[in-house]
């Protein structure tokens, strides 16, 4: 098992890289690295399982392909810039009419690559980390919120499976979706079943000693402190925008964050709860973190021997080949480190 914070570091590095570059070559490389980590993780989970069901209710690969295709098509019909005209839609079509260009198609596909990459990175995290590890990141002061989040995350795959059952059950009685009303036989059993399940879960949690009143005791002082902290944070941010008020603004923001953290700590103390399974930070977690730092450094820091101009790419006005710095390409491989730690059984 890789430490939760090491995974969070990996996620942040993937997101930073995805959001900084628009170069399709780097984006494709990042997506490939994420996919390889995800594939290794899924293989490991499948090797543990005796059941035949898929670990994810849909194919992430197909989903990413759909995102890229839809994004490319959407941009192509909305944006009519670019010099390589493929064909034209009639001008009388509102918004859509005009030339459909290769550049607009490429720009949309690049945006799709970014969106697909973000989705894939979160999917890998979902496969890699148990819900409990993610929920532990929520401050203890909001313990009921953490429990609700945990239930919500585990509820989604269940609801997806339930929807699949309902769709099949309706199909075998000859149902086909025609118009909005056609969704009723699918949505109604899902809603009612979801409510029944929620009630069942609430009963089970009551039987296991969970009471909804167990949230942190918010006294009037802590409430006031939270409001003050938020006001300071907001005020500091506003001050930063005014000429000469930058330093004061940052100071006020730090004060506000400290006050909010202190209030959360104070409320959290009144929540009687144990985190029994403290994770141990091992050498391998360090390696994952180093890999992530390498990726972030290559994409973010002004390192002299790296050609960061290749990170930027614009297919307009005419499609051209993107540049590629092998050093950035090599640094991206830092995302692959989890593969060497996750071993299928």
């Amino acid at each position: 098992m890789i430490h939760t914070w090491a995974w969070i570091g990996w996620l942040i590095s993937a997101l930073v890289a995805l959001s900084i570059t628009r170069n399709p070559l780097y984006l494709f490389l990042i997506l490939l690295c994420i996919a390889l980590v995800g594939w290794t993780q899924e293989r490991r989970l499948s090797s543990e399982s005796s059941q035949t069901q898929n670990l994810l209710p849909f194919s992430p690969f197909k989903f990413v392909l759909v995102i890229i295709t839809l994004s490319a098509l959407f941009n192509a019909v909305i944006s009519h810039f670019g010099e390589t005209v493929l064909f034209s839609l009639p001008e009388w079509l509102p918004f859509l009419g005009g030339p459909i260009t290769l550049e607009a198609l490429a720009f949309g596909a690049i945006n799709g690559l970014v969106l697909g990459g973000i989705f894939a990175a979160f999917t890998v995290l979902n496969l890699a980390l148990p819900v409990r590890s993610l929920v532990r990141l929520i401050p203890r002061a909001y313990y009921p919120v953490a429990v609700i989040t945990s239930i919500a995350i585990t509820f989604i795959p269940n609801a997806t499976r339930q929807f699949q059952h309902i769709r099949e059950a309706q199909a075998i009685r000859g149902h086909r979706v025609r118009g909005l009303r056609g969704w009723l036989p699918l949505i109604m059993p899902l809603l009612v079943g979801g409510l029944e399940r929620a009630l069942g879960l609430a009963e089970a949690m009551t039987a296991r000693g969970f009471a909804s009143s167990e949230g942190g005791n918010q006294t009037s002082q802590t409430r006031l402190g939270m409001v003050l902290g938020l006001l300071m944070l907001f005020g500091g941010w506003l001050l930063r925008l005014i000429e000469g008020g930058q330093l004061l603004g940052i100071g006020l923001m730090i004060l506000g964050i400290t006050l909010i953290a202190a209030m959360l700590w104070s409320i959290g103390r009144s929540v009687p709860r144990t985190n029994y399974n403290q994770e141990i930070w091992r050498f391998r977690d360090f390696l994952v973190l180093i890999g992530s730092m390498v990726v972030i450094s290559a994409f973010l820091l002004p390192i002299p021997w790296i050609d960061q101009s290749t990170l930027h790419y614009n297919p307009y006005p005419i499609l051209n080949l993107p540049g590629f710095d092998p050093l950035i390409g090599a640094a991206t491989m830092g995302l692959l480190i989890p593969i060497f730690i996750i071993k299928p059984k």
């Binding site: 148990p130 819900v131 239930i151 995350i153 585990t154 089970a204 949690m205 399974n277």
Partner: peptide, 11 residues
């Protein structure tokens, strides 16, 4: 299945 809160046996 209806009474499970998290996703792993130990948790």
């Amino acid at each position: 299945e209806a009474q499970f809160v998290v996703d792993r046996v130990e948790d």
